[in-house]
Amino acid sequence: MTERITEVAVGATRTEGGTRTRSYRVGGASALPGMGDAGARPLIALEICDDPALWPVVVLEEVGDLAGDLSGWAKAAEERWGADLVRLVLTSTRRRGFDDPASSGKAVGEVLAATGLPLIVEGSIDPALDTGVFRRCGEAGEGERLLLGTAEAERYRSVAAAALAYGHAVLAQTPIDINLAKQLNILLRETGVPHDRIVIDPYTGALGYGFEYSYSVMERVRTAALAGDADLAMPVISAAQDSLTVREVREAPEGERVETAVQWEFYAAFSAAVAGAGIVCVRHPGTVGMLREAIADLWGGEGWR
């Protein structure tokens, strides 16, 4: 393993043309954790959403009133829970009959105003809405170097266009398959999105629900890149989004539910970090601190090399 993971800039401070209080360069590793220079530690993103109706109950119970208050939620992610990034999921676009892309742009603006953290934006998942939603989101975050998602093999052109027009990076999601991940990266490259503006989302199944595939795909993506495959050399983002709605969490005894939710997210996210993910995303605030400590510990190792 001699190659290095491409660095992708996320977030822009004032000197970089944005308004963030910090920015990151994700990537840069030349080995998996524990196997050499694993680069900077992975970043932890806390996910929030603009329409809590589609959000896991166990999170809503934890965040209380913040669920309806995008600014407050984003601020708390930074100040109270210590996330590195905020990932805004525009769940409102998933509602039937959604026809207000301007509201998506507004939500992005609101979060950017509330927090100094760099922002990941998860937009619509409907080709009919994509163009409008991504344009508004891209516009609202112009200069802030957002991570804009999600491009998929069947609908990547509008995300790519918005990212190119407003200076953002693209989240490229494929369903748990290294080959499809590589294919999408090639498609994006041929649409004009440079390598250092792509983050691979290989899709992470929840622990016990396909996680074994996701884990190995992440390892394969990383080892292939480090062995020289430039079309897979972008940083990986992992979000086991279904973690909090699995049966184990839903049916956990009252007193154990929060703990189960946190552990279910933690084990998947920590494993993703071990597999070389550059950004890990969680939804329960309680997971953030635990993960931060564990990742610091993982990065504080002394090998024998």
Binding site: P33, G34, M35, A294, D297, W299, G301, G303, W304, R305
Partner: peptide, 14 residues
Amino acid sequence: APRTVGDFVARASH
């Protein structure tokens, strides 16, 4: 004989 999680991961991998 790891002292941290990182130690173990690195040494085990080695």
